[in-house]
Design a protein around this nucleic acid. Structure first.
Length: 548
RNA sequence: GCGCCCGUAGCUCAAUUGGACAGAGCAUCGGCCUUCGGAGCCGAGGGUUGGGGGUUCGAGUCCUCCCGGGCGCACCA
């Protein structure tokens, strides 16, 4: 039983004897930062004060006196808090349980195998992925991993928008590059794509097709659109492969149209009275529901807008059976998100069905001219180039280390360093060091397998750092859960750095091998630590190397 | 102007969603190179949490008003 469960049992028991009427299931628990406040504490006395009509301090004192549980050596009341001090034996028992769970330690069954979708990246095929998309790729993949760990059946989905005006502009830009390759002075169209990446493709088409498309005709538009999308998707796949993200489902806007879903959903909105006609177009009455603007759903030329299709797409997600959908999107889409959520509400879908994980943008520090990125202007750093330069692990880790809602300053000089300034190496190195100890241990015949170590005598574990490590390991499942539910993989980074931060000094101070009975006990602790480090890193999509 | 997000050590960021004296890393300064990997370890200084008011036992966290920044405000996606 983990520390939380033990504390809950101990406090509930005391409460039952002290004030049966006030007994409750939800006992608030915290991990105090200061050692003097014990190993786990509760502010329950504050919550009971009103009900019992007594000051929190008095309640805490009575509870402290009433706590009697084998896992805790003492209970102390301090300023209304109830602080519990755990017995080392109880911690060792926890370690034994962690070892028994092995690699599944940290998993939950909260999701009950229900289908959950994480949609992320979903970049339009108008260019390769930039470092900005990299944040989304790392974030979305980590969230998908985390929700898998919570027990959901997770689908990673990429929504591919391969039609519309932007694609038209891309095709036109590519055609311009093609004409330029044939020696003609054709400018990139207004609002078109200026990036260099279209130049070699234009040259290639010039060689292949010669002067087949001298004018921008419907036939040319069709041909260039097809090639452009195909080639851009090729680049996007290269970028995704570089950062190691793969998707289960690629959905295309065109499919939604073909199935008639867009119009069906539009009619449903109209039946709800949420649509009106003006200037030949159909608008959604969003301002009537408190939003700042009424958006167009159907243009005056009769074609649906991106928003309309997006609403239909989410209806489609619901019909496909997802119980929960998380869309990872940049901060520039907030209004769109409000509109989609509103439409789903009007249509009667459950409020919790759709959630957005909104992230702020990435700015690059240390390279001139690309601080402010723009795919259209051709001013960006390609994701694949960044990964080739720094390595997948560094890019992934840096991208998820910050709270999604905060701006991310990606310091290129820092990321390049292989010293302790670089937190990803700090964590990985802890794992590597443990792996190294195990290689040595095996050579000298110490027990190294999980089966052997979980049966070993753990009583030699009494060093404060050893007990602190067990307490941290005990927290791991809660960190996984919170990182998932708050859409904050950075919490996992923080936790792993904390673990490594206890281990490194310990390693420096305490020898593991050749210490008699202490050796197998320490190996048991380190095996659990190694397992948790590896699992935590893998949830972030980062490797846990045996050697570095 | 309106909507959303953000402002925490010199820098980059946390803070168990309202809890105890606001924590890390980097940078700065000073130590540790004979044993399992030095990509490491130990120590020191550094703060009116942008500012004012409010809510309560208790506020970085909630409400309000300023100041400063980002994003959006298309019959683009």
């Amino acid at each position: 039983m983990r520390l939380e469960a033990l504390a809950r049992a101990a406090i509930a028991d005391a409460l039952k004897r002290l004030a049966p009427s006030a007994s409750r299931e939800d006992i608030p628990l915290e991990r105090p930062e200061k050692l003097e406040f014990g190993d786990i504490s509760s502010r329950i006395a504050f919550t009971l004060a009103k009900e019992l009509k007594r000051p929190p301090q008095a309640i805490a004192q009575d509870l402290a006196a009433a706590v009697s549980h084998p896992a805790f050596e003492k209970a102390v009341a301090a300023g209304g808090f109830l602080n519990l001090h755990v017995r080392p034996e109880a911690l060792r028992e926890i370690l034994r349980e962690i070892l028994s769970e092995g690699e599944s330690y940290g998993d939950w069954s909260l999701g009950g195998g229900k289908p959950l979708q994480v949609e992320f990246v979903s970049s339009n095929p108008t260019g390769p992925l930039t470092v900005g998309h990299g944040r989304q790729a790392a974030l979305g993949d980590a969230l998908a991993n985390l929700f898998s760990a919570l027990g959901w059946e997770v689908t990673r989905e990429y929504y591919l928008n391969d039609e519309g005006r932007q694609i038209e502009l891309l095709a036109r830009s590519l055609w311009a590059r093609y004409r330029q390759a044939l020696g003609e002075e054709v400018p990139i169209p207004e609002g078109g794509y200026h990036g260099d990446y279209l130049v070699p493709i234009g040259e290639e088409l010039a060689r292949e097709w010669g002067d087949k498309y001298p004018e921008w005709t419907p036939a040319a538009a069709e041909a260039f659109r097809r090639v452009a999308v195909e080639r851009m998707m090729g680049m996007i796949h290269e970028d995704l492969a570089a950062i190691g993200v793969s998707f289960d489902v690629w959905s295309r806007e065109g499919d939604l149209h073909r199935r008639g879903l867009v119009w069906e959903v539009f009619e449903a909105l109209r039946e709800k009275g949420a649509v009106y006609e003006k200037d030949g177009a159909y608008w959604m009455k969003s301002t009537a529901y408190g939003l700042s603007r009424d958006p167009v759903l159907i243009r005056s030329d009769g074609t649906p807008t991106y928003l309309m299709v997006d609403i239909a797409y989410h209806v489609d997600k619901y019909r496909r059976g997802f119980v929960k959908v998380i869309d990872v999107q940049g901060a520039d889409h907030v209004e769109e998100q409000q509109q989609v959520k509103l439409a789903l509400r009007i249509l009667g879908y459950p409020e919790e069905f759709l959630d957005y994980c909104v992230h702020q943008f990435v700015t690059l520090k240390g390279r001139e001219g690309i601080e402010k990125m723009s795919t259209r202007a051709g001013r960006f750093l390609r994701l694949k180039d960044l990964v080739d330069e720094l390595g997948r692990d560094v890019v992934r880790y840096f991208m998820v280390r910050r709270r999604p809602g905060a701006h991310l300053v990606f310091d290129l000089e820092l990321a390049k360093k292989t010293s302790m300034e670089n937190p990803v190496y700090y964590v990985q190195y802890a794992h590597t060091r443990i792996a190294s100890i195990f290689r040595e241990a095996e050579k000298i015949g110490e027990p190294v397998t999980r089966d052997a170590l979980r049966m070993t005598d753990l009583s030699p574990l009494e060093d404060p750092d050893e007990l602190a490590l067990i307490k941290e390991l005990d927290r791991f499942p809660d960190v996984v859960r919170k990182a998932a539910e708050s859409y904050g993989p950075h919490l996992l980074c923080e936790y792993l750095e904390e673990l490594a931060g206890i281990f490194h000094p310990y390693y420096n101070r305490v020898r593991v091998l050749g210490q008699g009975e202490a050796t197998p006990a320490r190996l048991a602790l380190l095996l659990a630590l190694k397992t948790v480090l590896a699992k935590g890193l893998s949830l972030l999509g980062v490797s846990a190397p045996e050697v570095m």
